[in-house]
Design a binder for these strands. Structure first.
Length: 829
RNA sequence: GCCCGGAUGGCGGAACUGGUAGACGCAAGGGACUUAAAAUCCCUCGGCCGCAAGGCUGUGCGAGUUCGAUUCUCGCUCCGGGCACCA
């Protein structure tokens, strides 16, 4: 045998099969109502230049799922595309004086090649790039439809501004006070912007969380918290000696008798109203200005000390008639609820602190069991349960009952109602950037804000632009783009120069993959209906709220607009962990980046894939370990060598097992079927590729040992052949090139691509002898080799007869014997 | 502060529904082959005691339930993530 023949030439093998798959379009799919469909999708990448290890891991996991489902007979759609709009293209354009489009498309070409080198089984005919007008034009249509239904609107409000990115961010895109992309701290800014009414779907988005058993509980919890539903009441307080009423939202209507003052947001209109023309006016205006500035300079995560100022106004508690002073307080948020709060210091810690600071009364009205709280001795608010006291006719009620009773009374009397409030805010989608989807709107001095007529879509992003160093969008000053005619009056008008948040593109791309060539409509219903929803979605947990919430929202909107018939986009979600090196996330600044290209050159794609699956289960972070990669490479080399060494025998074997199996045959045959069972279970239950791979390693270890030169009785060639076939087939989803090659080397004419997953025979997997553990008082004292299925009595007998066990029992009386069939016997003395 | 995760050899990680802790791989040590090296193969490998047979101990810490706990309960410690004045 020549060493040449045995060499594992991964470069040649991988190149051969890459071409084979691409040229034959092996992974192209079409709807087939007769077959079960399976949609597996990985979060598409931003074309930043080159793929990184995180992509490798993400896409390898998806590829294994895709190939595995195909082998199970499913009609598998597995598409890939490019999240191609975004800031980096613009930054690169400014820096290198290229055009964002050119930069983006060059990156796409390069990265597509990288993905193909990994052997990922995509249907490339479905590839899309979101910066293509044929893609984003439909977003402009969606926007117009949403505008018609009141789901898109424009308002002037305080937004999150990122100075570095020179743009506004949605609330979801502010992570711990900083920009999700560049980490710059965001600052508040007043400006006009377009919003999508995600709050109209708050309840459905929340309820949907209970309909997603295939999602990690952690992600659902984060989404529930983000939506932040609170149930309570809205109560109206008449402002003393004035026309206005002050409406508050509270989750604790039961404490209304304990309200001793009111706090409102500094921006609340009533603050300016009440102080107008009084001697307080300047002082109050200063306070408002100061607190807003302070909020801007707050360290992320820091709480400002509570501060407030008396506005000079009072309002009347409708339940008690008491006159409550109205304070402007820095901790009250204008954006939440009504921007005003009834303050109950005895039962709310914030109000308590505020009351202490400004000498306001504390009146407990919910008494906890076995205690009698008094306002002047309390050191903290009591926020827990209790029974109402000093609350008029409601005294004596349990707090929960009181919530309903008091709200009900307010409703009868016409000064309140039960109310649900969400933390979720509408999605601000205006971006002051160039490289994005133009918002199809025209501003006319005469007619106001006008939608671009549908038949004029798309509003194409102009390409004749030049960047200066300011970082500002060139669209804002591009006269040829801005200047247009008003669709209503035909007069001079200006185009909207803001573009859409790029999260819009990723909110529906999974649907467009089902019909990427649809020309006359955004989605071709028969295709979308057949393929959707995505059965398995895979990506990083960093999108737990952002992309995943937006996509859920968009799916519901598109459903209500008649484009889709599903409620939820992703039935199952796998959030894979990060790839780390030396205990830290890979980053240029840390100098711990591993380049996939170098690895593939050195070991081949199969080894890189194998290691990234083997080193950790998918949800967990994966520590990249160079020596571990070597180990994966050695394993593939061993399999390759074995097949090549036995090539001729393997080709001659017809697969018919001998009628009588020898000891070695039985050992190997049993292991084969145990492995089929184990690998199938591991993938089906929880994508535990790491343990699936170790199972295959065990099978190969058995195979190699039984065929080692020093082995006494070698297995029959037919059993060996079955073992090799099993290894190659089970490993194919993870290590496709090598397995395809070895399959062919074994003499199979039909490629492994659509081979059926091996069948598991429970009979063959049965052990004919098992190790029974004998314990004395719970400690292992002996082991028995017995055939499985022995009756309990027999097992007890055998256990008690064991010499070593006898020694441990000694003279002590046996009190009890516990038998777990086929597992252990525990003798209690 | 609140809400989730997690903690197992030198390392990555296994362990069905409470039933042999450490599968599989890496590293390390020893050996074989080789003029030598690489590659490959074999052996050892949680800790302590012991020549050995074997014993004791061991899954972050402390209790508990159980014949039996990495697994269940309670209380802590540390690490990671999310939210953070949301009324």
């Amino acid at each position: 045998m020549s060493t040449h023949q045995a060499r594992y030439d991964f470069t040649a093998i991988e190149e051969k099969w890459r071409h084979h798959w691409l040229e034959n379009k092996t992974w192209r799919v079409a709807p087939d109502p007769a077959r079960k469909k399976y949609y597996v999708l990985e979060m598409f990448p931003y074309p930043s230049g080159r793929i990184h290890m995180g992509h490798v891991r993400n896409y390898t996991i998806g590829d294994v799922v895709a190939r595995y489902r195909r082998m199970q007979g499913d009609n598998v759609i597995h598409p890939m595309g490019w999240d191609a709009f975004g800031m980096p293209a613009e930054n690169a354009a400014i820096k290198n004086s290229t055009h964002p489009a050119q930069w983006t498309y060059e990156n796409i070409d390069y990265m597509r090649g990288q993905l193909q080198r990994l052997g990922l089984s995509y249907d490339w005919d479905r590839e899309l790039a979101t910066c293509d007008p044929d893609y984003y034009r439909w977003e402009q249509l969606f926007f117009l439809k949403m505008l018609e239904k009141g789901l898109a609107y424009r308002k002037m409000t305080t937004v999150n501004w990122c100075q570095t990115c020179q743009t506004v961010l949605a609330n979801e895109q502010v992570i711990a006070g900083s920009c999700w992309r560049c980490d710059q701290e965001v600052t508040p800014r007043r400006m006009h912007g377009w919003f999508l009414k995600i709050t109209a779907y708050a309840e459905e988005l929340l309820a949907g969380c209970d309909q997603l058993p295939g999602w990690p509980e952690k992600v659902l919890t984060m989404q529930r918290n983000w939506i932040g539903k609170s149930t309570g009441a809205e109560l109206e307080f008449q402002v003393a000696e004035r026309e206005e009423k002050l409406t508050v939202f509270t989750t604790r209507p039961d404490t209304v008798f304990g309200a001793t003052f009111m706090s409102v947001a500094p921006e609340h209109p009533l603050v300016a109203e009440l102080s107008r023309g009084t001697e307080r006016e300047t002082k109050i205006r200063d306070f408002v200005k100061r607190t807003q500035a302070a909020r801007r300079h707050l360290q992320t995560g820091e709480e400002a000390p509570k501060e407030g100022i008396f506005t000079g106004g009072y309002c009347i508690n409708p339940f008690t008639g008491a006159k409550l002073p109205i304070y402007a307080a820095n901790f009250v948020l204008m954006e939440y609820g009504t921007g005003a709060v009834m303050a109950v210091p005895a039962h709310d810690q914030r109000d308590f602190e505020f009351a202490c600071q400004y000498g306001l009364p504390v009146v407990p009205v919910v008494q906890p069991e076995g205690e009698k709280l008094a306002g002047d001795t309390m050191t903290a608010a009591h926020e827990g349960p209790g029974v109402l006291a000093d609350s008029g006719e409601f005294s004596g009620l349990d707090w929960e009952a009181a919530k309903t009773a008091i709200t009900g009374r307010a409703e009868e009397q016409g000064f309140g109602k039960s109310q649900v409030t969400y933390r979720l805010r509408d999605w601000g989608i205006s971006r002051q950037r160039y490289w994005g989807t133009p918002i199809p709107i025209i501003h006319c001095d005469q007619c106001g804000v006008q939608p671009v007529p549908e038949n004029e879509l798309p509003v194409v992003l102009p390409t004749d632009i030049s960047f200066d160093q300011s970082g500002k969008s060139p669209l804002h000053t591009l006269e040829s783009f801005i200047s247009t005619a008003c669709p209503a009056c035909g007069g001079d008008a200006r185009r909207e120069t803001d573009t859409m948040d790029t999260f819009i593109e990723s909110s529906w791309y999974f649907a467009r993959y089902t019909c990427p060539d649809s020309k006359d409509e955004p989605l071709h219903r028969p295709a979308a209906d057949y393929w959707l929803p995505v059965d398995q979605y895979i990506g990083g947990v960093e999108h737990a709220i952002l992309h995943l919430l937006y996509s859920r929202f968009f799916t519901k909107v598109l459903r209500d607009l008649g484009y889709l018939n599903i409620d939820e986009p992703f039935s199952n979600l796998l959030t894979q962990g990060m790839v780390i090196k030396d205990g830290a996330k890979m980053s240029k600044s840390k100098g711990n980046v591993v380049d996939p290209n170098e690895l593939i050159n050195k070991y081949g794609a199969d080894t890189v894939r194998l290691f990234s699956l083997f080193a950790a289960p998918p949800e967990r972070d994966l520590e990249w370990n160079h020596q571990g990669v070597e180990g994966a490479f050695r394993f593939l080399g061993r399999i390759h060598r074995f097949v090549m060494e036995h090539r001729e025998t393997l080709r001659r074997t017809d697969g018919e097992l001998p009628a009588e199996l020898s000891q070695a045959d039985r050992t190997l045959h049993r292991k084969i079927h145990q492995t089929i069972r184990k690998v199938g279970q591991d993938i089906d239950n929880s994508f535990q590729f790491n343990t699936a791979i170790s199972a295959v390693m065990e099978l190969s270890n058995t195979l190699f040992a039984l065929n080692a030169p020093e082995a006494e009785a070698k297995p029959d060639p037919a059993v060996n052949c079955l073992a090799v076939q099993t290894i190659v087939t089970l490993l194919f989803p993870m290590v496709p090139h090598l397995c395809a090659e070895l399959w062919e080397e074994m003499g199979h004419a039909k490629p492994l691509d659509n081979q059926d997953w091996p069948r598991y025979d429970p009979e063959a997997a049965k052990e004919d002898e098992i190790t029974m553990v004998v314990q004395v008082k719970g400690k292992v004292r002996g082991r028995l080799q017995v055939p499985p299925g022995l009756p309990e009595e027999k097992l007890k007998e055998l256990a008690l007869a064991d010499d070593r066990v006898k020694g441990f029992i000694g003279q002590a009386p046996v009190r009890k014997i516990i038998v777990v069939p086929d597992k252990l016997v525990n003798i209690v003395i």
